[in-house]
């Protein structure tokens, strides 16, 4: 294995630069080094102004999503050695405004997440010391969708979101579906009202890339297609059944 590798990183300071540019750095290539280690090496020893987010370094905090050789990936879970002899191209996540270098503005997602009402909605609360019974099978219904770490790689992979920033997007819809499928929840129709529209589930054209890039195997594409099926069934029921019979 070569002992060093070149890494090309997007540099951009909106206060100063007219547009983003690529800068190359040479870093040591170790078997256990991930792209994030290369970035930290640059920041610690070569250029302290290189800007990126990171925290847990074990693929669960969701901070370090980036485009690595054009593919959305977590920098902490992407080995440099997989790209030897290099160079490795590291860019900010696509489809988001760049704040600085590799840091993008994700506040749009937070807004959309809140609109999906990702919390348990019930008409009557259980007493404080009483649990809901939920069988392992019922847990399995939504468990996969509850694994979302909000890393937003799925937004970077979704061309629909790139073309239409109004689109609610994969993670926020998958999390709505996570609560819809939870046996403790009674808020499905409330959520459907805010998501069964062109900005919501019907905006999805099923490109399927969100599922491909998801580091947690959430399958947002599947979630959205299932949501569409539910929405269509509800619509049909409303058309066919007389009022009040639902």
């Amino acid at each position: 294995m070569a002992s060093r590798i070149t890494i090309e990183v997007t540099r951009y300071n909106p206060a100063r630069d007219p547009e983003p540019r690529m800068t190359s750095y040479e870093v040591p290539l170790h078997r256990e080094w991930v792209v994030l280690d290369a970035l930290n090496c640059i920041k610690d020893h070569l250029d302290g102004s290189l800007t990126f987010r990171w925290s847990c370094r074990m693929g669960v905090c969701g901070s370090c999503g980036m485009m690595i050789n054009g593919v959305p990936k977590l920098a902490c879970a992407t080995f440099l050695s997989d790209y030897a002899p290099g160079p490795v191209r590291v860019e900010p996540m696509r489809h988001f405004p760049i704040l600085r270098d590799l840091v993008v503005d994700t506040s749009d997602f937070l807004m959309k997440l809140a609109r999906s009402k990702p919390w348990i909605i019930r008409t009557v609360e259980k007493p404080a010391d009483e649990e809901h019974i939920q069988t392992p099978a019922q847990l399995e219904e939504y468990r996969q969708f509850s694994m979302c770490i909000n890393c937003l790689l799925c937004y970077a992979a979704c061309p629909i979101y790139g073309l239409d920033p109004q689109f609610t997007g994969p993670a926020a819809i998958a999390l709505a579906q996570r609560y819809n499928m939870d046996s403790r929840d009674e808020g499905a129709s409330e959520r459907l009202d805010s998501l069964s529209n062109r900005e919501g589930i019907w905006g999805c054209m099923f490109v399927g890339e969100c599922t491909q890039v998801c580091p947690k195997h959430v399958d947002p594409a599947g979630a959205i297609q299932q949501y569409k099926l539910t929405a269509a069934t509800e619509w049909l029921k409303a058309m066919v059944l007389p009022r009040g019979a639902k």
Partner: peptide, 20 residues
């Protein structure tokens, strides 16, 4: 986004072909 974004990845191309 670039006009030719759908040429960037095989999955995007198959998506566009499916739409077409």
């Amino acid at each position: 986004m670039s006009t030719y974004w759908w040429l960037a990845r095989w999955s995007y191309l198959t998506f566009i072909l499916r739409e077409a």
